[in-house]
């Protein structure tokens, strides 16, 4: 005969043990220090000075970065990340840009981010940066055809 009382209290214990174990994982503990990380890829072209309408609002600032260039937005992604997680922009042709949140808040009050460019899984460049929150920085790589690949990264 089945008991009238549910078994859930006994089932609860292993669940709680599992939760407690998970809680100990650094990535889970870091949940309260997550950051909204944004990565954006822009092509700057000296031969075509048009500004992509999607970038019109920040056109003047981009022009200060690279005068006499046109700017085209390739991709932009933003994601709430914990330590060790990353957000990836797909640039096409096997190229991807990735921002990895290394440290949401280091001892100097900065966010540590690693920015990578991959071509079919082969690193094209990689740079780790300690930046204040709410600030954007750009990685600028000049391409063979004279255009620049700008990768903007920032964390809030």
């Amino acid at each position: 005969m089945m008991s009238r009382f549910p078994h859930w209290p006994r089932l609860l214990v292993p669940l709680v043990v599992l939760w407690g174990t998970l809680w100990l994982l650094p990535s889970v503990r870091a949940g309260d220090k997550a950051r909204q990380v944004t990565i954006c890829a822009i092509i700057a072209d000296p031969s075509n000075q048009t500004i992509d309408p999607r970038l019109a609002a920040i056109g003047p600032q981009l022009r200060k970065l690279l005068p006499n260039h046109g700017f085209t937005l390739v991709d932009v992604k933003s994601k709430r990340l914990n330590s060790g997680q990353s957000v990836v922009c797909n640039l096409g042709g096997g190229l991807t840009a990735e921002a990895l949140l290394v440290e949401p808040l280091d001892d100097n009050g900065k966010v540590q981010i690693k920015c990578d460019l991959w071509l079919n899984s082969v690193s094209q460049f990689s740079t780790a940066v300690a930046t204040p929150p709410n600030q954007l920085f750009f990685c600028d790589q000049k391409r063979m055809n004279g255009t620049h690949l700008l990768i903007a990264v920032g964390a809030r």
Partner: peptide, 28 residues
Amino acid sequence: PSSVAQSDSDPLDIDPDGSLVVLRIEAP
């Protein structure tokens, strides 16, 4: 990754103070 150009343990410290920081990648 086939190569890593910069160590994680040595991040480039930036403090823009109202400016925009641009990291120009000259070579890996």
